[in-house]
Computed example of a mutant assay.
Amino acid sequence: MTFHLRVPSFIICALLLSLPVSGAGEAANFLPDRIGEFQAAGSPRGGAFEDYPLAEFPVLDTVKRIYLDQARAPYSVTLVRLRTEPAAYALLTSVADRLRQREAVVGSDQIGTWGVMTPSEVAFFKGTCFVLVSKAKLGTPEALRSLARGLAEKLDRGEGDIPPLVRHLPDWESAQNRAVFTLSLGELQAAAGHRPALEALSFDGGTEAITASYGPARLVIVEHTTPQFAADNDRRIIEHLKNLRAIGAPLPSLYRRIGNYAVFVFDAPDEGFARRLADAIRYEQVVRWLGPNPRAWERWERAYNRMTASVVVTTLKVTGLALILCLSIGSVLGGVVFFRRRARAAKFKNYTDAGDMVRLNIDELTAQTDPTRLLGPAK
């Protein structure tokens, strides 16, 4: 005899949601059961990041989880763990570029290391983690930001900073909101508009790139890790541009090597605009010694000489200022005393060497205007 047990479908769905799904990996540990007032609905689930392709990024694992607020409104959280912090920032800028195509994006450093916000989504990175938080129609923007902020507080901060290349953009603080940071040629081409001139680039050795729009123009900065990589790419790019010019293919408005940077300007309105944009880029060279610096003594000696010269110059300046101050104060006080005595002396019409004291007119030479003030003859 065979027995058939019928179980309602909603119970099966609930049981499936309550079971952890393989593939979440270690990233599931970053999504706790409760974040502030938000309660998780079901277990973390691993899987692909459907809306955004991750083939160009060094992804370790991806995890998703649904959270409910006190009004039972659902919020979807997707966390992607990557190998490096620059890769996490690169994924954030790529997602932000796609979000800008749908709605207004506002950049902010108040959530995670850096993030972008829209009325319906918040994306940020912190350490090696990238997080995207989305709300349903029942959710509120305030609750969305509160959930993202609470989740960011639980993540390791890592270096706690954006890649240095971002700060080398002209007017980088405003350009960062529209910039895309990339670690591969495919992502750079997608962000810059598939430019033929970029096909000669090689991203070997940890090369990084960033692109941003400046009015009608598109700026691309590619940073190579060593001068050798920069020189090899520079020769390859120049040769590639010659070939493009020979076949009449589109060329950049300007190409220039600046230190380890390869700088491209596309679609500039004129040559002067492209040149000014490239001139605003400053390459900061950093040299690191694998062992003791062989020129440490020379650097210390130069620093000591600069310090000594600075002390001497400062002493002379202070001495000169003190002398000028003393002479100025002495001149003012002396002048005040001189003119005050002069004014007092001008009040007396007759001069007497007795200083207004009683004086005997023995020599009878001094003219007397008031005889009653004279002493009489001696008795």
Rank of each mutant, 00 (worst) to 15 (best):
E271N: 12
H240C: 08
D51T: 13
Y351I: 09
T2W: 06
D370E: 15
E37D: 14
K317L: 13
T182D: 04
A192Q: 01
E271C: 06
L183C: 01
R45W: 07
V106N: 11
L82K: 07
T84Q: 09
A179D: 06
R288H: 13
G291Q: 12
L15V: 13
S328A: 15
A354C: 15
F273S: 06
P216A: 10
R98M: 06
Y351S: 10
L188G: 05
A268N: 02
L183N: 04
Q110M: 09
G330T: 11
E173R: 03
S184R: 07
Y214L: 06
L219N: 00
A246Y: 02
I237L: 14
G46M: 05
V21F: 05
L188E: 00
R373P: 04
K242H: 06
L15S: 12
K64P: 00
L99F: 05
S146E: 14
R341H: 12
A148T: 09
Y351H: 10
G355C: 06
T118W: 02
T207E: 08
G335R: 12
L241R: 08
D234Y: 02
E239I: 03
Q368L: 06
R195E: 08
A136C: 00
I162K: 07
A28T: 01
P164V: 01
R102N: 10
F264R: 02
V318M: 14
K135G: 05
L54C: 11
D270A: 07
T314Q: 07
V313M: 09
G334Q: 12
W289I: 00
D51A: 13
G158E: 06
R235C: 05
T225D: 13
E56N: 11
E271R: 14
G376E: 11
F339E: 09
Y351G: 09
E187P: 03
L151V: 02
H240P: 09
G215A: 04
L325C: 15
A88V: 00
A212C: 10
R302C: 08
G193F: 06
N233C: 08
G334V: 04
V222W: 03
A280L: 01
L365N: 11
E223R: 03
T319M: 15
P164G: 07
G23V: 06
L244W: 11
P164H: 05
Y52P: 01
Y89H: 10
L16W: 05
L132T: 00
L325P: 00
G150E: 08
P74M: 03
H194D: 14
F266V: 02
G23N: 10
G259K: 03
E301C: 14
A217H: 07
A209C: 03
E173M: 08
I238S: 11
A152F: 02
G115S: 08
N29H: 09
E142Q: 13
Y67N: 07
F30N: 09
P294S: 13
V95K: 07
L16I: 10
A55Y: 04
V222F: 02
G36I: 10
R306E: 12
G330L: 15
A303T: 13
W289S: 10
S9E: 14
Q285W: 05
L365Q: 13
V131A: 07
D69Y: 03
G46P: 09
Q176S: 08
L244R: 12
L290S: 15
A48K: 15
L254W: 00
A212G: 05
H240R: 07
V312M: 11
V263A: 04
D51E: 15
E103K: 04
P170A: 01
